[in-house]
Every structure is written in structure tokens, then in C-alpha cells.
Amino acid sequence: MLSYITRRLAIAIPTLLILVVFSYLIMYAAPGGPFDMERTLPPEVMANLNAKYGLDQPLIVQMWNYVYNVVVHFDFGPSFMYKDQTVNDIIAQGFPVTLTYGFWSFVVAVVVGMSLGITAAIYHNSWLDYLAVGISIGAQVLPNFVMAPILVLVFTLWLGWLPGGGWQGGQWEYIIMPVIALSTSFMASIARLTRSSMLEVLNANYIRTARAKGLPMRRVIFRHALKPALLPVVSYLGPAFVAMITGSVVVDMYFSTGGIGVFFVNSALNRDYSVIMGITILTGALTILFNLAVDIIYAWIDPKIRY
């Protein structure tokens, strides 16, 4: 087990470094610097600015400094756009918000998705099954950027139940719509996955054996069927996490929740490279860590995996 984790780490760390170097190179290759404004600055001012942000040094030195600061001090440097804020400030401001609704979306997607899938599999070919399958097929074509306007249309404009945006320190009525918008399509995928693997497991011989020796259905499902049936679902959690982080950009833009996505898109539109890079690297690191955790959990619950 330990050697497996070590081996996985040996892949994860270079991946992260490649991501950092790659995004730095793209940023360096970008035409136009962060201080190219409509009014050209005097050359002395330009030189001073470049010196202050260390942009006058050779590429390799700049890159080393950047990587060193990120890895050792966890410092992503200053923002080029908001002069009084560092990238760390921006992340500290937006990240807790993203994390809050991201966490709840994840919980909702997993709990609802699995329950739907399991119910559908147990009551295979009944109206419950068709209902669950119908919901999950419908939800599949409703990605977050489609769900968000529909939700606002129904719950804010027509029914007037929920506020159309804002965060207000995370009160529940501000969290509901972002969570629904973000979790719908993953809930659908998880439900489909759970259903098909649960069906497969329920037809296996050892389940019939368990039933034949007189165990009640509930016990068979929860003790014998659930664990092997959830394996494919566990391996889907990694990609789901990535997509959820990505989806948070839409949620932040549309519901003005003030999460990290707003800063990402605004700095993308304003060419504020240090913020874009900081957020890209942070999400990359989170993704890689999460995938690692999922792989370890998978290896732990699946006895068939050799590591």
C-alpha cells in the first residue's frame, strides 16, 4: 500500500510541476505585458514597474523565483490588475465561498445520485426505475450554465421564492440555487453509473446465494451488494470533482456568489496573468490531490487491485 501511494505521488508531483512551468511559459509567450495600457507609459516608469515585479530578469530566473515562492512560501505574487491585492488575498477571499457551495453540491450529487441509482436498480423495470432513469437522462443535458438561468427564471422571476444572486455570508437561501445548478448533471451521471453497476451486482451468483440462505433483502443490499456496486462510482468522483471546480466558474459568474470563478474570468478578460496562473495552479493542485485520494480509497476498498 505504501509503495502504491509513493508511486502515485511520484506521478502527481511532476504533473504539478509541468502544470506550473507550462502555464508560466504560456504567460511569458503572451503578446503584450501587463502594463501595456492605452496610454503608453514613459520608458523609465516601465523599467521601474518591470523591475518591481521582477520582469526584467531572464526567463529562467523569473520562473525559478515564481516556482520557489509558490512551493516554499505558498505565495503566488502580486496581482497586476488590483494594485493593492496579492493573488493570495484574492484566493483567500474567494476560495471559502467556492469551497462551501462546492462541498454541498458534491454531497447532494453523491447522495441523491446514489439513492436514485440504487432505487432504480432494486425496482428494476418498475415505474420507479423509469422515473429515476428519466430524471437522470433529463439532467444529463442540463449542464450548469443551462440550469442556472432556468432556476433563476423559475424560483426568482416566477415564484419569487429565492434571491437571484449574492452570497450574504452563505445564508441558506443563497446557497440553494448554486448547489442545484452545479450538482444536477453529476447527479445524473452518478445515478446512471450506480444503477448499471448495481444491476450487474444484483445478478451475481453470490447475491443469489445470500438470498437463498435466507438473508433479508435489505441486509443483502447494504452488506453484500453496495460495496462492489459503488466501485465505478468512486472512480468517477475524481473527474466529477474537476468538473465541479470548473463549473463553479459559471456559478460565480451567474449568481454573483463572489467565489474564485469571478476573479478567474475577470482576470482572464483583463489579462491579469498572475491571478489566472495562481487559480489554475491551485485548482490543478487540488485536482491532483483529489485524484490521488480517490485512487487510494479505490485501492483500499477494491481487493482485486494489486498495488
Binding site: T15, F22, M27, A29, A268, L269, I276
Partner: peptide, 21 residues
Amino acid sequence: RIVDVLLAIPYMFVLILLLVV
């Protein structure tokens, strides 16, 4: 391994980075 490394990157952010640059 190359594919694994590329898959572990949050591509949407990188794609946006590419589009911006």
C-alpha cells in the same frame, strides 16, 4: 503516462488560459 499527466490537469482552466494569451 503522458496521457495520465494531461488528464490530471484541469483542462478548462488551461484552455481559458490559452484563449486569453
